[in-house]
Design a protein around this nucleic acid. Structure first.
Lengths: 113, 113
DNA sequence: TGGAAATGCCTCTGAATCTTATGTATCTTT
DNA sequence: AAAGATACATAAGATTCAGAGGCATTTCCA
């Protein structure tokens, strides 16, 4: 099952912030691949969605960037700033509470993953 | 805490379909109030979002409507059609799996509500 | 060795969805 | 009598994502 895109709306930033919280630095393409891995292809981050989001996070001062050259190829690494770290925690907490609320609303028994 | 609107995006139809699955018939205003009750004001359905959604569900043939007059005042009741019932189940299942996937991704311990 | 697939960055248009504001009317409570 | 709750609805604007497209390099395999 691939989740209908509507569901993923609103969670993209949270996902990215969490990955960066766990990995100290990642580049765009790596993030798309990692999400595919971790979700068994159930969540597909398209680049058209990811890059604008990363740029927005940078604008907001939540991440900083750093270029790294591999031969002629460039990688743009993103890492959390201090405010990014706290925002990351906030977002994850918020999402956890959101899931809890939705469980009640939809009367869902949480599967312990 | 009121959830940031981004999170709620994409879940509105699921919420409405679930409420209608549980209540056989409801009208718009009632739905907004019920959601506030059930979520302790954490999810606010604005009417500007709800009514277009209800109309869309009707267009898709997932709900049927029925007017009821209380004196001069009109209530428009919505109820699930057979296809609405199965869609409701699908959406809830999908959301449950989405939560499960997100729990892994965000490394969240599900609170048993 | 040549071409396909993967890696890696990016932008833009359009579609979908929600918020905010606005409008109208009735009923209830103070 | 006025304010607030009930009850419907639409419209403009913002946000956000998907899909398509574009460009360049590297790796793999036939």
């Amino acid at each position: 099952m691939i989740f209908s895109s509507e569901l993923i709306k609103g969670t993209l930033k949270t996902i990215v912030l969490k990955l960066l919280a766990d990995n100290s630095k990642m580049y765009g393409y790596e993030i798309t691949q990692r999400v595919k891995e971790l979700t068994g292809d159930r969540i597909q981050l398209t680049e058209g969605a990811l890059y604008p989001t990363l740029h927005a996070l940078e604008q907001e001062g939540l991440v900083t960037t750093e270029l790294e050259y591999m031969g002629k190829r460039v990688r743009k690494y993103y890492k959390l700033s201090p405010s990014g770290k706290s925002r990351s925690k906030e977002r994850i907490t918020e999402f956890a509470e959101f899931m809890s609320t939705m469980s009640v609303l939809l009367n869902i028994q949480p599967k312990t993953a």
